[in-house]
């Protein structure tokens, strides 16, 4: 399958990419690892007139802790996430999700920035970022803005990025001590989209839940932040009963549809089960 014809532009710096976006943004797509965009172009679901390849830009693949956050360059590949010691040691939700994204070959090319900008409701990283309260950095030739991930992910395949902006960095607040996280994904086979997945990030403070974030993959028009479920845990003891109640609230926040991967009833039930299990895992990790 061949995509429609397009003009290919290779950017060698962020500035060059931004200038190309100023020229062609309305009719352009940004190409990073291409693992979501190219399949869509081949199916001709998207047919941009211009493709701006940012993959060769040096310096956009950093993983570093800076000012209380983990700063991830937009071009960090999924396999880099999966093998990073900083992430394994301090960001358990992300560490759990990274090796479950797509398959090992796709993870060699797919990038975190591309995945988030693609905004697939079945995408894993959107939920991870929602559960961890991440922000994305959007740059344009006229400046930069930092947008909470919940405001960035607007709808299916739709974000709040403007045609002249480039997603350059993702910032995840460093979890406090005594934190844990989990990402439980139900899939029919490796590489399939999630039937259901649940991201959970939780911290303990004086024996009770200090903060919690819960987000859902594949059960709505976008990654869903189960805010009510997370709020129900604040200040409560990390008990099975509290986790079961959060599971029920998370299931209520989901909005799955029946498809080849399962019925809506089944998916909603799995949200409940995975939320409960994920919270237990994260809590045990936090209790250390």
């Amino acid at each position: 399958m061949l995509p429609s014809r397009f003009d290919y532009h290779r950017a060698s710096s962020v500035e060059e990419a931004l200038s190309l976006l100023d020229d062609y943004g309305e009719d352009a797509k940004v190409l990073a690892g291409g693992q979501s965009l190219i399949p869509l172009m081949k199916l001709r679901f998207v047919s941009p007139g211009h493709l701006i390849d940012i993959d060769p830009i040096p310096g956009l693949d950093g993983i570093e802790e800076r000012e209380g956050s983990l700063a991830l360059g937009a071009l960090v590949r999924h396999n880099q996430l999966a093998s990073s010691e900083i992430i394994t040691n301090g960001y358990p939700t992300l560490a759990a999700a990274a090796p479950q994204i797509a398959d090992p070959i796709v993870r060699n090319l797919g990038t975190i920035g591309g995945s988030l900008a693609h905004a697939d409701p079945a995408g894993d990283l959107g939920s991870v970022m929602l559960s961890m309260g991440a922000n994305v950095v959007l740059r344009s030739s006229s400046g930069e803005r930092v947008v909470p991930i919940g405001e960035f992910l607007v709808d299916t395949f739709t974000t709040s990025i403007t045609p002249n902006e480039l997603l350059t960095e993702i910032r995840i607040p460093t979890p406090p001590p005594r934190s844990g996280g989990s990402y439980l994904k139900l899939e029919r086979k490796v590489g399939d989209f999630a039937t259901v997945a649940v991201a959970v990030t939780l911290s303990l403070q004086d024996g009770t839940v200090g903060s919690a974030g819960i987000a859902l993959t594949g059960v709505g028009l976008k990654n869903i932040e189960a805010a009510e479920a997370a709020a129900s845990l604040h200040g409560t003891a990390p008990t099975d009963e509290a986790f079961a109640e959060a599971g029920r609230l998370a299931a209520a926040a989901s909005n799955p549809v029946t498809d080849v991967r399962g019925t809506d009833t089944y998916k909603r039930h799995m949200v409940e089960v995975y939320t409960r299990r994920g919270l237990a895992t994260a809590s045990a990790m936090a209790a250390g």
């Binding site: 290919y8 290779r10 190409l31 291409g34 693992q35 190219i38 399949p39 390849d53 993959d55 090992p104 070959i105 796709v106 060699n108 090319l109």
Partner: peptide
């Protein structure tokens, strides 16, 4: 040296 799917990459890349 790393495996990639050549149906999901443009030759120009």
């Amino acid at each position: 040296g790393s495996p990639v799917k050549s149906c999901t990459m443009f030759g120009v890349q």
